[in-house]
Amino acid sequence: MRVLHTADFHAGRTLRGYDRTPEIRDALNEIVGLARSEKVDAVLVAGDLFDTVNPPADAEAAIFAFFLALRDAGIPSIVIAGNHDSASRLSGLSGLLGWVGVQVVAQPSHDPRQMIRTVETRSGEKLVVGALPYLSERRLVKAADVMGAEVGLWRQKYREGMKFFLGQLAAGFEAGAVNMLMLHATLDGAVASGSDRGMQFDLTNAYTVSPLQLPAAAQYVALGHVHKPQELGASPLACYSGSIIQLDFGEGGEKKQVNLVEVEAGRPAKVHPIPLVSGKELRTIRADLETLDARLSAVKGFDGLLKVVVRAPAGTALPGLKDRVLRQFPNALGVELEAVKDEATVQAASREGLSIEQLYERYHQERRGELPDALRRVFKETDTAVREAAGDGI
């Protein structure tokens, strides 16, 4: 069986006022082409189809065209809601999407069986997917309450609640079928892209899932939420496919991909990353005033999107700088000033709050190395004597 795993489309995304949806549409067309050429049996989309809960019409058109193209190719798909999606909106559309072969799991159900989706493939093999949409702590508490669990426990530990749902989904796996799990969540050990808004916080707080909590019976775990493609854990094999274009300058330089998963019932899955070429390359240029022209000349002919950061002394006014850059590079979406403090200011700030003894120790380290204990005692005694003499009015 061959399954294509993708996620994090973010249709409707704008970057500093620049609409990225045409690039996202191109990437979706590329993914449909790969699904055809690789003869996949199903496509898994692990959340964040849209960038906002109320996407513009062209973003919806791009997503629906993607699913219609998969329908025309005879390829079924399974989709979950991500944190950027409107779960209620996707839930309302699930009936219509079902007519074109899209199985949607947008919200948790009081009956875990409602979160199990199956596909009878052309080869006769059966694919079973436990599909868990994004669950914030608030939604997890509400879902646990509906299912009759002790709500107080969910409030205490997010991951214990997730463990409950994951266990319920694993109970729906079938012998003799290919069993997969799909969720939109943050796993411990995941590395965020610079553009994963709020993700750096998520990766260090309590609202994560341990790879050890993933059901061992899952042959593959299709993850969404983190935009950097990566593999986490081997038993079960869990992977983020990442976003499909460089969505933000924090993702500049990242190679985007989809994951082609080859698997058969009862055997470990094999993952083959397939690179995507759609979408403009994003690049950040950093320079000071003296090197700015040279740095810009070095990227002449670059047809992606630029952010230019100019380092200058704090308080410097640079009228006309943005116009100067845009004349050379109309594709520059941002021109920013990065204040650089002069050395004297930096040194003064570094001395702030230090005692005279600490200042002397720092001075000695910079000039002669580590301060000997004997010399420290002499300095301290001298300092004390001077202070006492000053107190006596001498």
Score class of each variant (00 low, 15 high):
170 A>W: 08
215 P>V: 10
119 V>M: 08
196 D>A: 12
150 E>A: 03
178 V>H: 05
94 S>T: 02
130 G>F: 07
134 Y>R: 14
181 L>S: 14
160 E>L: 08
221 V>D: 07
191 V>L: 13
189 G>E: 03
113 R>L: 07
222 A>V: 06
131 A>W: 06
192 A>D: 11
146 V>S: 01
124 G>A: 11
120 E>V: 13
136 S>F: 05
123 S>A: 10
151 V>N: 12
112 P>E: 01
194 G>M: 13
165 F>T: 05
147 M>P: 03
155 R>F: 10
108 P>S: 12
188 D>E: 08
189 G>S: 03
161 G>H: 07
130 G>N: 05
214 L>T: 05
163 K>I: 03
135 L>Q: 00
160 E>M: 13
212 L>I: 11
97 L>Q: 13
119 V>C: 11
181 L>M: 09
155 R>N: 07
135 L>R: 00
163 K>T: 06
201 F>A: 15
164 F>I: 09
206 A>S: 11
200 Q>L: 14
160 E>H: 14
97 L>G: 11
180 M>I: 13
186 T>F: 12
181 L>K: 06
101 G>Y: 13
203 L>K: 11
106 A>I: 12
137 E>N: 04
178 V>I: 10
215 P>D: 07
186 T>G: 03
153 L>Q: 14
182 M>Q: 09
204 T>D: 01
211 P>Q: 01
138 R>K: 15
154 W>C: 05
205 N>F: 04
158 Y>S: 02
151 V>K: 15
120 E>M: 13
127 L>I: 12
124 G>Q: 06
166 L>F: 03
208 T>W: 08
110 H>R: 13
168 Q>R: 14
222 A>Y: 11
185 A>S: 11
200 Q>F: 15
157 K>Y: 09
127 L>G: 07
221 V>K: 06
121 T>H: 01
210 S>I: 02
110 H>F: 02
108 P>R: 05
144 A>S: 10
137 E>Y: 13
146 V>N: 05
111 D>P: 00
206 A>L: 00
132 L>Q: 01
110 H>N: 07
185 A>R: 04
95 G>P: 09
107 Q>I: 06
124 G>C: 08
99 W>G: 10
118 T>M: 09
119 V>L: 10
108 P>L: 08
157 K>Q: 14
144 A>M: 14
145 D>I: 04
213 Q>T: 06
163 K>R: 15
216 A>K: 15
128 V>H: 00
222 A>K: 05
110 H>W: 03
204 T>F: 08
221 V>G: 10
179 N>D: 02
209 V>E: 02
196 D>F: 06
220 Y>K: 03
101 G>M: 14
141 V>D: 00
110 H>E: 12
